[in-house]
Design a protein around this nucleic acid. Sequence first.
DNA 1: TATCAAATTAGAATTATTCTTGTCAAGTAC
DNA 2: GTACTTGACAAGAATAATTCTAATTTGATA
Lengths: 132, 132
Amino acid sequence: MEKYKDIGLKLTPQRLAILNYLDGNKEHPSAEDIYRAVSKKFPTMSFATVYNTLETLRQRGGVLELTIDPDKKRFDPNIEPHHHLICLKCKRIVDIHGDYKLGVPNGEKAGFEIIGNHIEFYGICPKCKKSD
Amino acid sequence: MEKYKDIGLKLTPQRLAILNYLDGNKEHPSAEDIYRAVSKKFPTMSFATVYNTLETLRQRGGVLELTIDPDKKRFDPNIEPHHHLICLKCKRIVDIHGDYKLGVPNGEKAGFEIIGNHIEFYGICPKCKKSD
DNA sequence: TATCAAATTAGAATTATTCTTGTCAAGTAC
DNA sequence: GTACTTGACAAGAATAATTCTAATTTGATA
């Protein structure tokens, strides 16, 4: 929780519940996952609040919005630079912290100013491999 | 067009128009982009046909579905292994063909069988840099 | 404690995508 | 040639994720 303090956010109970749910979470939850979990404590919680809070957090660098899943956005509270391993069957996402130093050859930069990168590794997770 | 022949598809005029639009296209168009373009020739074209054709193509390896854009799927007729450079402002996507040989350290594999990877480079494109 | 901007809520609206159903067209069997 | 069969198409309805709206409430602080 500490890391969310004093970044200028009004600390409402709803936000605290969302932050609390996200903190240390390695599941890369969707907005609905978050909504369902936090609704248990706050039955009046609305999706607007979930999305608003996530967007505010994202703008302030408190959470990453992942576009890995074609069906919905997923969110990653781990804001250290890292990469992902994705199961093609169950869509499970796992963090990878390997140190890759990647650059774009000048001939391919197309005039872009490069800011960062993200590697997605695709594969089949152990659970899905078993249940074939 | 040649490359789409004999992959078992009935070559209807609608499909030909979609294939023709995709062939050599470097814009990574969305379903709507495709729909709009092809509708000019086929005013009765429906989204169902666009999505059906894209899904059929995807299953047969004729097109890649990109999940880079958080708002919609985008499609890439370039099926050679390659990576992407994405403008954070205008969402323009550019192909990169640099040869990166990436592996996941065994300690991080989490039991996954790795099948492939995809690098996304983020940045600002020349046009957006100017119009700041 | 009064104030006020910011946050919350419920539900409506929007957008992308998928589904349903009826129709049509091409190919094949007879 | 005619009847089947199958796959593709079209139109619009349905769904799912997300965003917006408007009214109300709340947290921070003076």
